[in-house]
Design a binder for these strands. Structure first.
Lengths: 115, 115
DNA sequence: CGTATACATAACTCAAAGGTTATGTATCAG
DNA sequence: CTGATACATAACCTTTGAGTTATGTATACG
């Protein structure tokens, strides 16, 4: 018997993983930094008042979200941005574009109705 | 003396709140449902195999993220989509658009450089 | 070889997130 | 006033997340 009931451990869907990864200012700052070129973990850690293992964890979160890839160069691990999941997130958001670009229109309609 | 050391309780920045709110499939589904018009909490809860208080909590998360507003109509609480925070999120994401739409270009440049 | 550097992993703490059941509150309907 | 409906809140539990310190591992260097 395999392990009895196991809460199924279902990993969240990709979009949830992406948004969760983005829901942290440190990780967003890391991505911003990587948008101007590759960097090692140490270089990425430098700006933050945080321990090295903390950054290491953040990088792992970003990696599991597919937002970065890591290579190996001597004892450095160069990190590289992969924006593919950001594109997915953007596609999801775009479906709501009408609701913000149209907000003035809807406000106008509301005013019109009130008259 | 007020409470000694208090971890400062700093509320997260708006973008983090927005992304965190979006990092849950139930909440994204609720937003999708609201994109086709207002709905009461009960109507929003119907599709989910989840208790009523659970939905109530999700709605509170969405409300605190500014993604919905709630009115009052008899004993119903009509929910309405407010996409403003989505626009903010979109603006953040757009800064990375070059990294996905331009990926083929950058690959070509890389190949060119390698020659 | 031994040592320094760069990073990963382990073990732990604390708080927050997501769910539950039970109960409270506001509003309508009779 | 009474009861039903729609929702919110409280109290609780379990899992996950973000941080810490301490330790392990891989690579360069003398």
């Amino acid at each position: 018997m395999p392990a009895v009931t196991q809460k199924s451990a279902a990993r969240p869907d990709p979009l949830s993983i992406t948004f969760a990864a983005l829901a942290d200012p440190t990780r967003r700052a890391i991505l911003a930094r990587l948008s101007s070129g590759e960097a090692s973990a140490g270089e990425l850690a430098a700006p933050f008042a945080m321990s090295q293992p903390a950054i290491s964890k953040h990088l792992k979160v970003l990696e599991r979200a597919g937002l970065i890839t890591r290579g190996r160069e001597a004892q450095w691990r160069p990190c590289k941005l992969d924006a593919t999941p950001l594109q997915q997130a953007n596609e999801w958001l775009e479906r709501y574009a009408a609701f913000w670009s149209g907000s003035l229109d809807r406000l106008a309609a509301f005013v019109e109705e009130k008259k």
